[in-house]
């Protein structure tokens, strides 16, 4: 391949297709000519043909474009930020949240609150967790900052409900324990990058 295309520094012209637009006629004769040419050109019929063709395509060639939501749903990106989910550890089924409060801190609309306590096993227990969805702007910072990949954004975008409160407590967000096998890892912001292992420096261990 030559270097010609790089030598053309007339940026803005090289890869564009310019349309041959008619100039607005100024003389009476010019206007007359334009009318005549437009009248006898089949442009209008091209329009009719296109719509008719699309109808045939839709009806008989299976090219109907409609997705019949809610009976059919389009797949959404794994990075989609819908209503939050709290994940569980796959091995033990215990919730992942450690109650560190980083999500609460980073939340720019100040809508996350949590109650924690010292539990019987000398661990920090999240006794309640809530997101005020009246304020949440679904920015995803909470999922990004979460060190345990505990709070993530789920794919559940159908959030019509009689009460906002139906989504906002720990129980509502937590993966039901009987559906643990269906729990999906989150791929969005804050998820472990595919090459995470390469970036870790190992610490010596005595045993």
């Amino acid at each position: 391949m030559g270097l010609e295309q790089f030598k053309n520094r007339n940026v803005g012209t090289q890869n564009y297709k310019t349309l041959d637009l008619d100039h607005t006629p100024v003389t009476g004769m010019g206007q007359f000519k334009q009318v005549v040419s437009r009248t006898f050109k089949p442009e209008l019929f091209v329009g009719l043909w296109v719509t008719f063709r699309e109808m045939i395509n839709a009806l008989f060639r299976g090219k109907m474009h409609t997705t019949q939501y809610p009976f059919e749903k389009l797949p959404i990106s794994p990075r989609y930020r819908a209503i939050h989910e709290m994940l569980r550890l796959l091995e033990s089924g215990h919730y992942r949240c450690i109650g560190c409060g980083l999500c609460e801190k980073i939340c720019i609309s100040n809508c996350i609150t949590m109650d924690t306590r010292y539990d019987e096993n000398q661990r920090k227990e999240v006794s309640e967790y809530t997101i005020n969805f009246g304020r949440c702007i679904f920015c995803g910072y909470c999922a990004e900052v979460c060190p345990e990949l505990a709070i993530v954004h789920g794919p559940r975008y159908e959030t019509a409900s009689e009460q906002r409160a139906s989504f906002s407590l720990f129980e509502d967000m937590l993966t039901p324990i009987d559906k643990l096998n269906l729990q999906q890892e989150y791929q969005g912001f804050g998820a472990v990058s595919p090459n995470a292992d390469e970036n870790i420096k190992k610490t010596p261990l005595a045993y």
Binding site: T51, M55, N57, M64, H65
Partner: peptide, 10 residues
């Protein structure tokens, strides 16, 4: 219906 078909809708 006709308008929908022509726009590939139902």
């Amino acid at each position: 219906k006709i308008l929908a078909f022509m726009q590939r809708r139902y």
